[in-house]
Design a protein around this nucleic acid. Structure first.
Length: 780
RNA sequence: UGGGGCAUCGUCUAAUGGCAGGACAACGGUCUUUGGAACCGUCGGUCGUGGUUCGAGUCCACGUGCCCCAGCCA
């Protein structure tokens, strides 16, 4: 379930108004790279929202650029989407629609809305102008329909080389929206398309294909990311001219809505940068478990459920955001906690000899796969074995050999322990998980002074220890390689232009940008160790995810692990509240924007404006409103007109704050006289501000006279205590807890009580009186 | 600099003009044969300045900051 957001609000309204019968969305990747976590989040929005509304989401490949797209990517993205758990009917392809798209382009030409341009790309860029200079028409802009038709046909026929001509929409070369300066609809590309082969040598642009394919697919809500906001104007323009005519006469008219992108801390998601990581050998491939690709995450052992939970927690908004990687890690741990049986593995072995056990001693312990809390939380009282079979908790154990010689983790022994250390120390004790308490009698060091072996004794039942450590039998454990993955980059925002620790000696151009992000690669993003895992795992399915106790969640690398040469990937560590990173750099000094400079006291005004300002002020208009009015003749004119019928000081606020935007846009439907009449009502006390505000908004919507609305609906301010008191009593009686909270000091609740009574009276209570009465009651 | 978009705890995200709430992180505690999990608690936020209003995160004005747009990429 996708949590409510600005898009679901739009859909709710659309459904309510009957604009659509069914919600249809689409997820439109371009098959020119691997899907990554960003795609996962976007697809969660597209598929999730459609699902929530009982609609459908189509997977449509946006394959309009033959030079970069490949079947390989179609396959991998399709696999990734299925893996995530999304369901769709048939996959669609923009390339399946090429013939219809061509027809629609012809239609635009016939309407005089599109033309073939024949200037060079450089020339076209020049003619487009710049952000502050309007474009100029190409000499070919006024070609006849016939000539355009003929040229376009010949483009399709392959008579011209790449770049000779393009088809452009004839929109507006002077538009302040650069996207509207006659966008390209079709270009010539002599290249083999992975699906249509050599059938076409002209290809539709993103803008043209996206809008038309959406309409062909029956899409109702076309969701995309924020960088396409400006493109929406093209989308709507195309629909204005094409929708409703064949072939777009049998599906609803689609609309585009944009949401903010999400990126993730400590990684990069731009295709170009990911490609650099692979090509430069910084990772071992697209499915390297450190990569944010779904292939990489899958190989790492992350489950689709965890990724969906993550996407859900990240949410949707209209702001680009970079998400705390802790959120992903939490989603993974949360998912695996209930999915991964516990076993023991030692990643950096240190030999332990239990001197008080005889040579060759071996006993088999039966240790539980699950900790007490997972057992308790099981809904059916059963728990899973690694194969998935659910059994009673007492059956969910595995045999663990206990022998005279063991391995423990090197980190679990310290000659010179830091304060608070709870594991083994010389002469100290520790509990071996499931096997009893041992005491370290002495340690043996190697030539370099490193500890190579501990000599310990197994103590009796009554022995105590502060800590518990994991272990494996030296003779019976299985050797294994462990791949310990960590964040790919050392900084949370490797793509950011500046970093605090970095000097910017070279005022580098774009060439430095890449070296930049690569310089933040974490040299320890992969550590390979060789150690041991308990032998029970040999019998488990290869895709079993484990929690290696006290260490992390792991599974066998699906490519490299073999039964006789085990390789485990660490999916994520356990949360560690002890070993706190020393490098925890909280001083991520939040650069608060420097304290706002002194605002200019009075913005520059012309002499004329200043005069108006003074006049308004002298007529009782507040300073702030007067300033706005002085600068906006349109508002001032409206106010002057209204002031013929009511007091100017009382009107100004309404003109500026409530009607201002509408007056500016010349959309105002309330006349100055009507406003004045309403304000007089307000001044007379027969209505309150709330009523006036609501009525004004309604009038602006419907065009009805506000005073008429007041009369028709019988609105009047309730100003007698006799009417309000019973309502107040009722609200207080219904919320005894709030009353108590208020009396014990939470005075912010006054707003709550006022709000409740206002709601009861549909906004008609006199708020001042109400507050007064409430004060009295609540004090008593 | 033209146009557009955006701004709420460290991070993500809620709040018909009416209690600024939740999640993650952090911190503290309970519990624990995982320094895990769970549970309890603490810390912490409306970009700034004015205005409208009984009441503003929400409405208005003016600022500030960040992002997008001048591909025959998407």
């Amino acid at each position: 379930m996708v949590s409510p957001n600005f898009i679901t609000e739009i859909i709710d309204a659309d459904l309510e108004a009957g604009r659509y019968e069914k919600v249809v969305t689409r997820f439109p990747p371009e098959p020119n790279g691997y899907a990554h976590l960003g795609h996962a989040i976007a697809s969660y929005i597209d598929f999730g929202i459609a699902h929530d509304y009982g609609g459908v989401c189509r997977l449509r490949f946006d394959d309009t650029n033959p030079e970069t797209e490949k079947q390989e990517y179609v396959d991998s993205i399709t696999q990734d989407m299925r893996w995530l758990g999304w369901e769709w009917d048939e996959t669609s392809f923009a390339s399946n629609y090429f013939e219809q798209l061509y027809e629609m382009a012809v239609r635009l030409i016939k309407m005089g809305k599109a033309y073939v341009d024949s200037v060079s790309p450089e020339e076209m860029a020049r003619l487009r102008g710049s952000v502050d200079k309007p474009g100029t028409p190409s000499p070919y802009r006024e070609r006849s329909v016939e000539e355009n038709l003929e040229l376009f046909e010949r483009m399709r026929a392959g008579e011209f080389p790449n770049g000779a001509h393009v088809l452009r929409a004839k929109i507006d070369l002077a538009s302040p929206n650069m996207k509207l300066r006659d966008p390209v609809l079709y270009r010539i590309v002599h290249a083999e398309h992975y699906r249509t082969g050599r059938k076409w040598c002209i290809y539709p642009s993103y803008d043209f294909a996206q809008a038309t394919s959406d309409a062909l697919d029956g899409v109702t809500h076309s969701l995309c990311s924020l960088e396409f906001v400006d493109n929406r104007a093209i989308y709507d323009w195309l629909m204005d001219h094409l929708w409703g005519h064949p072939p777009l006469d049998r599906t609803p008219r689609p609309h585009q809505y944009e949401f903010g992108r999400r990126s993730l801390e400590y990684t990069v998601v731009s295709k170009r940068k990911l490609r650099k990581l692979v090509a430069g050998g910084y990772v071992r491939g697209w499915d390297d478990p450190r990569m944010p690709t779904l292939a990489g995450q899958r190989r790492r052992g992350v489950t689709p459920e965890a990724i969906r939970a993550f996407a859900s927690q990240v949410g949707i908004s209209r702001t680009n955001r970079t998400v705390d990687i802790g959120l992903l890690e939490h989603a993974i741990r949360d998912d695996l906690n209930h999915r991964a049986p516990r076993v023991m593995a030692v990643t950096r072995p240190l030999k332990v000899v239990l001197e008080n056990l005889p040579e060759g001693h071996e006993q088999t312990l039966h240790l539980a796969y699950w900790p007490h809390d997972v057992v308790q939380e099981s809904p059916d009282g059963l728990v899973a074995l690694p194969g998935g079979r659910r059994v009673r908790p007492e059956e969910a154990t595995r045999p663990v050999p206990f022998t005279r010689e063991l391995y423990i983790e090197q980190d679990d022994f310290a000659i010179d322990p830091p304060p608070g250390f709870k594991r083994l120390t010389p002469g100290g004790t520790v509990r071996l998980r499931g096997a009893g308490v041992i005491r370290c009698e002495r340690f043996i060091t190697g030539e370099a002074g490193e500890v190579v072996e501990l000599r310990c004794t197994l103590l009796g039942e009554n022995a105590s220890a502060k800590g518990v450590i994991h272990w494996v039998s030296a003779s019976r454990a299985l050797a294994a390689e462990f791949r310990l993955y960590d964040r790919l980059f050392t900084v949370p925002h490797p793509e950011a232009k500046e970093h605090e620790d970095e000097e910017t000696e070279d005022e580098g151009g774009p060439a430095h940008e890449d070296r930049d992000f690569l310089s933040f690669l974490n040299p320890k993003s992969l550590e390979v160790t060789h150690g041991y895992v308990e032998p029970s795992v040999a019998d488990d399915p290869a895709d079993t995810r484990y929690q290696f106790e006290r260490s992390g969640y792991f599974w066998r690398d699906p490519i490299d692990s073999r039964p006789e040469a085990l390789v485990f990937n660490r999916i994520v560590t356990l949360k560690d509240t002890w070993g706190k990173e020393a490098e925890r750099k909280t001083p991520t000094a939040k650069r608060k924007t420097p304290t706002a400079e002194r605002q200019r006291e009075v913005p520059d005004l012309t002499a004329e404006q200043r005069e108006v300002l003074e006049r308004l002020k002298s007529q009782g208009v507040g300073e702030a409103e007067a300033l706005v009015l002085a600068r906006e003749p349109r508002l001032e004119a409206y106010l002057s007109e209204a002031a013929k019928h009511a007091e100017m000081g009382a009107l100004a606020g309404w003109v500026v704050n409530d009607l201002g935007p509408a007056i500016r846009e010349e959309q105002v439907r309330v006349t100055p006289a009507q406003l004045a009449a309403l304000v007089r009502l307000l001044q007379g006390g027969s209505i309150n501000t709330r009523i006036a505000k609501d009525v004004l908004a309604e009038a602006q919507q419907s065009g009805e006279d506000p005073v008429t609305i007041v009369e028709r609906r019988g609105l009047r301010q309730l100003s007698d205590a006799g009417t309000l008191e019973p309502l107040i009593e009722r609200v207080l009686a219904a919320n005894p807890d709030k009353v108590a909270a208020y009396r014990s000091g939470k005075t912010g609740l006054m707003g709550f009580f006022v709000g409740q009574v206002m709601r009861e009276t549909q906004g008609q209570a006199n708020p001042q009186l109400l507050q007064e009465l409430l004060n009295r009651k609540l004090a008593g």
